Computed example of a mutant assay.
Amino acid sequence: MGRVKTSVYIDEELWREFKELAREESREVSRLLEEAIMNYVVGELIDVDESKVPLWVEPVKLRGEETSKVLREMRDEREESLLG
């Protein structure tokens, strides 16, 4: 499969976050975008009624706290470090 170079307009903050996550994971931005597009295309091609897909989610404790609380604190710290 060949590759093409393209231009798109993306929210600046979202793009910065995406590139930072790619860097943290030592992943290529292009590869992650290809995966995201592929997941979208496959999702559109497969006709699945998502309301019938069971979801089993249980809260996870981290350091004795709800994961959502720890994650929110981490996001707030990151936002503060980026925006000052």
Rank of each mutant, 00 (worst) to 15 (best):
E28M: 14
S68C: 10
S26R: 11
M1N: 00
E77W: 03
M38I: 13
V57C: 14
R75S: 09
S81D: 07
M74A: 14
V8G: 00
E44F: 02
E66Q: 13
V57P: 13
R23N: 08
D76K: 10
R72F: 04
K69P: 08
L32V: 06
E17W: 01
L14H: 11
T6K: 02
V70N: 08
L83V: 12
D11E: 03
K19S: 07
E25W: 11
K61P: 07
K19W: 02
Y9W: 14
L55D: 12
V4I: 13
E50L: 06
L62A: 10
R31E: 09
K52V: 09
L45A: 15
Y40F: 04
L32F: 04
L32P: 01
V4D: 06
E50T: 00
V48M: 03
P59D: 08
V4W: 04
K5I: 02
D11T: 08
E35D: 11
L83Q: 02
L32H: 05
V70L: 04
E80W: 06
L71V: 00
D11K: 09
R16T: 13
V60G: 07
V57F: 15
A22K: 02
K69V: 09
V4R: 06
L55G: 12
E20Y: 00
R16D: 13
I46C: 09
R16W: 08
E66L: 11
E77T: 15
T67D: 06
A36P: 03
I37F: 02
R72P: 08
S26I: 10
L55C: 11
G84H: 09
L33S: 04
M38N: 10
V8E: 03
P59K: 11
V8P: 01
D76L: 10
V70Q: 07
D76G: 01
P59H: 09
S30L: 01
P59W: 00
T67A: 13
V29S: 04
E35K: 11
V48T: 06
Y9V: 10
Y40N: 03
V42K: 02
V57H: 15
S68R: 14
W56Q: 15
K69L: 04
R16P: 03
W15N: 10
A36R: 05
V4T: 13
P59Y: 01
E44H: 05
V60R: 13
P59S: 06
S26M: 07
E44Q: 06
I10E: 01
G64Y: 04
G2P: 12
V41G: 02
D49Q: 08
V57N: 15
E73G: 01
M38L: 14
I10C: 06
V29H: 03
E66F: 08
L71W: 00
E58N: 12
E12W: 09
R31P: 03
A36E: 00
L82T: 11
R27M: 12
V8R: 05
E24Q: 15
A22R: 02
E80I: 14
V60A: 08
F18L: 03
D47I: 00
D49N: 03
N39K: 08
M38G: 10
V53L: 00
S51N: 08
E73Q: 12
R75V: 10
V29K: 04
R16L: 14
I46Y: 04
I46A: 12
G43I: 07
E12D: 15
S81N: 07
V60H: 05
E13T: 13
V57D: 15
